[in-house]
Computed example of a mutant assay.
Amino acid sequence: MQMSQPKFNLTRLLALLLLLAGTAIVLVPMLWTLSTSLKTPAEVFGGGFFPKKWLWSNYSDAINAIPFFRFLGNTLIILVPVMIGTVASAAVCAYGFARFNFKGKRTLFLILLATMMLPSQVTMIPTFLMFKEAGFSNSFLPLILPAFFGGGAFNIFLIRQFMRGIPRELDESAFVDGAKRWQIFTRIMLPLSKPPLIAVSIFTFMGVWNDFQGPLIYLNSNDKYTLALGLSMFKGMYNIEWNMLMAATILIMLPALIVFFVAQKYFIEGISISSAVKG
């Protein structure tokens, strides 16, 4: 019997080429950043793509050129409470929208979703003036406090969609056993909602770790700078130390990459399951 030859699939070929092009668009800048971090200042623009001699000392020099560990501590001071506040407050709000029935619930949820369409630049100045009048300027509080009030509409929406997919029979069984609302939330809903909670945690980590605009607006003292803001110190009045800047960028980028690859299973699961739930 003559074996049939596989048919040429133009659609799959185009999809593969598109994926390869997208991968190249993402990887080439990262490779350039890594390559530049190992070059001498003269090789940054005068040499080839790869350094002639790999200068690993650029990384230690970059750490010593700025108060790296002080900036790291400042970043963690903001990051830890923001992650706790965002996940906790978003989970509580999502539980209310997913399980409670109250007057105006649908309207309130639509208003919440509408805030996702509002650019942050619209509320930037009023928010800054509000925190300034409260005496919180040049402090970490304006960067931390908003996280304890829902942490953003998208986070609430994501967790709410997942919780709606959890069978209500679990709640009813818990009520029969004498459990209260708070016990159901902490002992049933939160453990079952681990995928979206981890996804929100990753989003929050990435946002705070890479945030430049927030610290730039609210922090005036150099000793309170975060890592993202500290990168600007490599930019001088007349020149930029590109090799040192790229070395510091690689060091700052590594934790975010590690967190994503370690937790990507839960990240993808939380996004896909929440997106599949209707209502």
Rank of each mutant, 00 (worst) to 15 (best):
Met3Val: 13
Gln5Leu: 14
Lys7Asp: 15
Leu20Pro: 01
Ala21Ser: 04
Ala21Val: 09
Thr23Gly: 10
Ala24Leu: 05
Met30Gln: 09
Met30Leu: 06
Leu31Lys: 05
Thr36Cys: 01
Leu38Ile: 02
Glu43Ser: 05
Gly46Pro: 07
Gly46Cys: 03
Phe49Asp: 07
Trp56Ser: 05
Ala62Cys: 03
Phe68Met: 08
Phe69Gln: 04
Phe71Ala: 07
Leu79Lys: 02
Leu79Ala: 06
Ile84Val: 15
Gly85Cys: 02
Thr86Lys: 10
Ala94Gln: 02
Phe97Lys: 02
Arg99Gln: 03
Thr107Arg: 00
Thr107Phe: 00
Phe109Arg: 06
Ile111Lys: 06
Leu112His: 14
Met116Thr: 04
Met116Lys: 00
Leu118Phe: 00
Pro119Ile: 11
Ser120Glu: 09
Met124Val: 15
Ile125Tyr: 11
Ile125Leu: 14
Thr127Cys: 06
Met130Gln: 15
Met130Gly: 12
Phe136Glu: 10
Asn138Arg: 07
Ser139Thr: 13
Ser139Val: 07
Ile144Pro: 03
Leu145Arg: 05
Ala147Lys: 05
Phe157His: 00
Ile159Pro: 09
Phe162Arg: 06
Phe162Pro: 01
Gly165Lys: 03
Gly165Thr: 08
Arg168Asn: 10
Asp171Phe: 00
Ala179His: 03
Lys180Met: 06
Arg181Lys: 11
Ile188His: 03
Met189Ala: 15
Leu190His: 04
Leu190Ala: 10
Lys194Cys: 07
Lys194Pro: 08
Pro195Ala: 07
Pro196Ala: 05
Ile198Met: 04
Ser201Glu: 14
Gly207Ser: 14
Asp211Met: 09
Gly214Pro: 01
Pro215Asp: 10
Leu216Ser: 12
Leu219Trp: 00
Asn222Gly: 02
Gly230Ser: 13
Gly230Val: 13
Gly236Asn: 10
Met244Val: 08
Met244Lys: 11
Leu245Asp: 10
Met246Ala: 13
Ala247Tyr: 08
Ala247Pro: 09
Leu251Glu: 01
Val259Gly: 06
Ala276Arg: 02
